[in-house]
Amino acid sequence: MSTVETPVASSNEAPPPSPLKRIATYAANQQFILFLVLIGVMIFFDFHNTRFFGTSEFTNLLVDFSEAVLIAAAEMYVITSGGIDLSVGSTIAVSTVVGAYAIQYLEGHHFGEFPSLLVGTFVCAGVGGVVGTINALLITKARLVPFVATLVTLSMGEGLALVFSKGGTVGYDPAAAVWSSTGFWIFRWLTLIVLGITVILGIVLHVSRYGRYNFAIGSNPFAARAAGINVNRHVASVYVLSGVLAGLTGMIWYFNSSGGAPQNGIGNELEAIAAVVIGGVSLVGGVGRFSGIILGVAILTVVHDGLVFINVATTWNEVVVAGFIALAAVLQSLSSGSKRRT
């Protein structure tokens, strides 16, 4: 048997990198830089108003984080599989409205508060699942490009949310808000549940077979198919998952605003995509770390909330966010230029 001598073989025997070089590698890591920036921004806010590092503000930050993180996670799954989902924002709107009707109906029929909210949660997830299924069918059966397919459901969801709700907030449920404002220390129960789901999503993406297939398909769908992976079935499941997560987010918004407003979530797909970009996830698929989008959502939340907190006119918000996206994109292109092939 002959042995092929390859240049990679030689790096096998290379000595371990020196501590200095290891520090340099960390410093060049996009996520590490962004993490430092996040800490810096938070210190900056606290410098302006020392209430920032207080339990009430951290509670707020975690609530707003939990409103955004599930759709960012959904977008991460979809984008790493090589697609995109523009419909997550309007799915929040349509699911929050339908869920609100369901809860209103059940509570009106003496169903009890807790069971009503629980059923409402399933209704929201179900509505999201239906939107996700439509996306999945448009993409895997009608062979539409994901951008177009989810643009269809984006418009549809937005329109239906208004049609169903007749334009106004559906239901007024202070009980939901009261429950959603209970918890301990900086955590609310709702926040903890969302964080739990988030951790599970991260683990599944990086250590399970499902996550592996997701990256493989995003990296090279032909290789995935040749390896015996049912690519269509997996892609369909990713869009359904994305829809369900957006639906659940609709329920979170219901809790946090004690009603189903048809404007809820409109436009938030771009926020989710921004978090994904800031987190260093490749928009062409196949590459990304879940920790990146956690960081992305954290940065967006802190900037969004912190600017209001220190009484900067909210009109500046988007300008600052744009700066972060630019920073992340530049870091990514620098690092990919140094280590990735063309």
Partner: peptide, 16 residues
Amino acid sequence: SGLAPDLTIGSNIFLG
């Protein structure tokens, strides 16, 4: 159709 470029060598060998 060979390999998924963004996965490790081991992941590719065992893909599927």
